[in-house]
């Protein structure tokens, strides 16, 4: 696979800006820390040469930004990793932005690092990190360079990558990959194999850490509502305070339900969670249940496909059968 570097992207962006194909570029910008890369919009090549960055921390999914960006004048360039392209398609399916106002460049991806992983490997004095082939080299103040295997330290979403194929683009840089599916339901299945009490204890422990920062919602490319029900005083469920019990479950269950059948499993929710709650396990549960009961469905794989929860088959299984079939019968 051709390695995509900062230079390649920069060159592509600069030429598209120069030719007038686009007037803005949605890209990544260096943050305070090495792992703290943030999305940014560049309007000229000069800024780009100064601030644009591309490394193994550029995991952010850009698709959601297109909703706002396409409201502006002119075309915007976006780089789509495989994950992002699914969200891109899903948003198009839901008529959330104008395809004509986007120039999409597909880029291959074989996994992006999470800030939390790196921070865990080098809790103190991390000054830099880089990828060198299969190795991840961390520069630290106290321990010098620490070299670890890149693949072994990928976050869950990349370890169990659903697809290395960019499904929507105007132009592809490098070679496109294939749809994979590296056991992404293993963790869900493991939870299903537990007893109800064990599962409750697991989630109680996870969700009780939630601080209701709404980062998961804000980053989610499926959570693009003009006004979220949890922010809407008229919805009856508006609630921003935190509590230790059911409140968080309500939020996370409803959020997962609202994106069920629309979630592209990009894993951004878990990436951004400051409390490291494995939120993707909620979404994957729905995807797993949908696949098992209504046939395999990948949101965003095709533009215009009908989401499973706004669809039905006469021969669908009953609710009780679905619950029991998903490990509910364990005694």
């Amino acid at each position: 696979m051709q390695t995509i570097t900062r230079d390649i992207l920069l060159e592509k962006a600069a030429s598209l800006l120069a030719s007038g194909t686009v007037n803005r570029v949605l890209g990544w910008k260096k943050g305070e820390f090495i792992y703290d890369v943030t999305p940014a919009v560049f309007t000229n090549a000069e800024d780009m040469y100064r601030h644009f960055t591309f490394d193994c921390f550029c995991g952010a999914n850009f698709s959601k930004y297109l909703i706002k960006e396409t409201q502006k004048e002119g075309k915007v360039l976006v780089f789509l990793k495989p994950c992002d392209s699914y969200s891109f398609n899903q948003l198009l399916t839901e008529h959330r932005f104008d395809r004509e106002k986007v120039y999409a460049v597909g880029i291959p991806c074989d996994g992006m690092m999470d800030a939390s992983t790196v921070k865990a490997l080098a809790p103190e004095g991390l000054t830099g990190a880089e990828r060198n082939g299969d190795a991840l080299i961390l520069h630290t103040l106290y321990d010098g360079d620490v070299t670890v295997s890149y693949a072994d330290h990928l976050p869950d979403r990349c370890k169990h990558c659903k697809s290395k194929k960019v499904v929507a683009y105007d132009e592809m840089l490098g070679e496109n990959g294939e749809v994979t599916d590296a056991g992404r339901f293993d963790e869900v299945a493991a939870l299903e194999a537990m007893t109800e009490d064990e599962r409750f204890a697991f989630w109680q422990n996870e969700l009780s850490r939630c601080i209701r920062c709404n980062a998961c919602r804000d980053v989610c490319p499926a959570c693009t509502c003009e006004k979220c029900v949890f922010d809407n005083p008229g919805s009856g469920v508006e609630n921003k305070a935190i509590s230790d019990r059911f409140e968080e479950k309500l939020f996370h269950v409803i959020r997962a339900f609202h994106v069920a059948g629309r979630c592209t499993d990009c894993g951004e929710c878990s990436r951004v969670c400051p409390q490291n709650i494995p939120l993707h396990l909620l979404n994957r549960k729905f995807i797993y249940d949908i696949d098992r009961n209504y046939g395999d469905y990948m949101a965003g794989a095709e533009e215009g496909s009908r989401a499973p929860l706004v669809n039905y088959q006469i021969a669908d299984p009953e609710a009780g059968e679905v619950v029991s079939g998903a490990g509910g019968d364990k005694v």
Binding site: E192, F200, A260, K285, A319, V323, A326
Partner: peptide, 11 residues
């Protein structure tokens, strides 16, 4: 089916 399966998943 989806909701109840999820609730059961949460214990």
């Amino acid at each position: 089916a989806m909701l109840f399966s999820m609730l059961n998943y949460l214990g």
